[in-house]
Simulated assay, not measured.
Amino acid sequence: MPRIDPKSTVLLICDVQERFRSAIFGFDAMVGTISKMVKAAQLLEIPVITTEQNPRALGSTIPELGLSSLPPNLDLGTFSKTRFSMTIPSITSILQERSVKWAIIVGIESHVCVLQTALSLLETDTKPYILADGVSSCNRQEIPVALERMRHDGVTITTSESILFQLVDDASSPLFKPFANLIKESKESTKTALSTLLDRQTNHL
């Protein structure tokens, strides 16, 4: 299996909207992971695609993710949708035009939109990676079941720090120093996300 390459990867952020702020289990912990991934995307020049589920009713994407800091060439857009999967035609076209081989998926809900996005991508040439410390649901119990189903169906389940080290690949890389600084500055938020979102799931992964 070829190594994941930043040049052929996108970060998909699924429906992290205002209305979900008080409803999603471990919302702030999940946001910490996603914010770290947005910073890493800027460092590694990985483009980002964001969706909003029915934004008129559920609000816009929260500002804490840091999407406003992305340069135009990395921010591929925020797309409104009613379909649960992120694989709406406009996004599928982007993935095909850019020959995207890997998609890192974060957001909500793990058992609905995240799961359906991952399963849809399995039918394409883009391999989905789910960050277990970057997805959540309203009901905590749904999360490990969704992750186990995705893993069983062939989706790679990993963590934010693990995937980032894969992407950087080599400590001799000129990106390693700023990357190491990002890992260091996000150390506490990473611990919080892991303890909040994964401690109860370990037996299911």
Rank of each mutant, 00 (worst) to 15 (best):
Ile105Met: 07
Ile105Gln: 10
Ile105Ser: 07
Ile105Ala: 08
Val106Tyr: 06
Val106Phe: 07
Gly107His: 00
Gly107Arg: 00
Ile108Pro: 14
Glu109Cys: 01
Glu109Gln: 03
Glu109Leu: 02
Glu109Trp: 00
Ser110Asp: 06
Ser110Ile: 09
His111Gly: 07
Cys113Arg: 06
Leu115Arg: 14
Leu115Gln: 15
Leu115Asp: 14
Gln116His: 15
Gln116Met: 14
Gln116Trp: 11
Ala118Leu: 08
Ala118Ile: 08
Ala118Lys: 05
Leu119Trp: 10
Leu119Ser: 11
Ser120Thr: 13
Ser120Leu: 07
Leu122Phe: 08
Leu122Asp: 14
Leu122Glu: 12
Leu122Thr: 07
Glu123Trp: 05
Thr124Val: 06
Asp125Trp: 03
Asp125Leu: 09
Asp125Cys: 11
Thr126Asp: 09
Lys127Trp: 06
Lys127Met: 11
Lys127Pro: 03
Lys127Asp: 09
Lys127Glu: 10
Pro128Phe: 05
Tyr129Asp: 09
Leu131Cys: 05
Ala132His: 05
Ala132Thr: 13
Ala132Cys: 14
Ala132Lys: 10
Asp133Trp: 02
Asp133Arg: 04
Asp133Ala: 08
Asp133Val: 07
Asp133Met: 04
Asp133Thr: 07
Gly134Phe: 04
Gly134Glu: 04
Val135Asn: 00
Val135Gly: 00
Val135Tyr: 01
Ser136Cys: 11
Ser137Gln: 01
Ser137His: 00
Ser137Phe: 00
Cys138Ala: 02
Cys138Asp: 00
Cys138Trp: 00
Asn139Val: 00
Asn139Tyr: 03
Arg140Val: 03
Arg140Cys: 01
Gln141Trp: 00
Glu142Ser: 02
Glu142Gln: 03
Glu142Met: 01
Glu142Val: 00
Ile143Glu: 09
Pro144Met: 15
Val145Glu: 08
Ala146Val: 05
